[in-house]
Design a protein around this nucleic acid. Sequence first.
DNA 1: AATTTAGTTGAACAGTTGCTCAATTGAGAA
DNA 2: TTCTCAATTGAGCAACTGTTCAACTAAATT
Lengths: 122, 122
Amino acid sequence: MCAYAADVDRCDCNSIHEDIVLDVRERLPDDDNLIDLADLFKVFGDSTRVRILSALLLAEMCVCDIAVLLGMTKSSISHQLRVLKQAKLVKYRKLGKVVYYSLADDHVRTIFDQGLLHITEE
Amino acid sequence: MCAYAADVDRCDCNSIHEDIVLDVRERLPDDDNLIDLADLFKVFGDSTRVRILSALLLAEMCVCDIAVLLGMTKSSISHQLRVLKQAKLVKYRKLGKVVYYSLADDHVRTIFDQGLLHITEE
DNA sequence: AATTTAGTTGAACAGTTGCTCAATTGAGAA
DNA sequence: TTCTCAATTGAGCAACTGTTCAACTAAATT
């Protein structure tokens, strides 16, 4: 029988190592934090957004510049910039009709570097 | 007219800053690398997988342990472990009927830490 | 005022994703 | 062998996601 049937009814198996499960359960971060973390990585998990961020690592650019650079429509770029804005990964400034986007802080660079490290290794 | 109409026909606007676009285009990493990077982050972009990885940061566990810990079916956990395995983020060892999973390397920890840093800031 | 253009927005559609369910595999126990 | 159980697998389905398209806003130019 499942050791946690009372509070976890989806459980369909025995707890083989009850001591480990109890210990990990206690030390595991709150679900809220882990969900926020997943949501952040979800933003990085699209090649269009990664390409936009990579471009902004090199220079501040307007929507039109990015669209031309990546060979995509302004609309699709604008949609993705909205996602990046909501995740506080990019910031922008308006000059007349033109909106210039740039990275909000340096976290993008370090996260990218760690990711590339995992990919290029072995 | 779009300055890159020849090789990029989706372009629907002028290149406002042609010099910047040309410079960034030259220095931008290859699309293959950026797609691989996005695919890696895609794996981190699901709360179930993040919770699994967080658990494995604390202890080696079998499928059943993880299922009980997270209150999910063995099947769904197994499906996600397969994704994590393909991304080379977890490794496993078999002992009889039981399969023990653990983290493949320490990249997960550093990537998580960087992500948490971005979230908790400001 | 009328036109042009950078950028945004929302609906719609296709493609993807994660969970469920049922069937199956494989190793140990009876 | 037969039974049990940990784990895997594939099909099916509902929910989500990214692009397209068309309409729209706003700022500059004529």
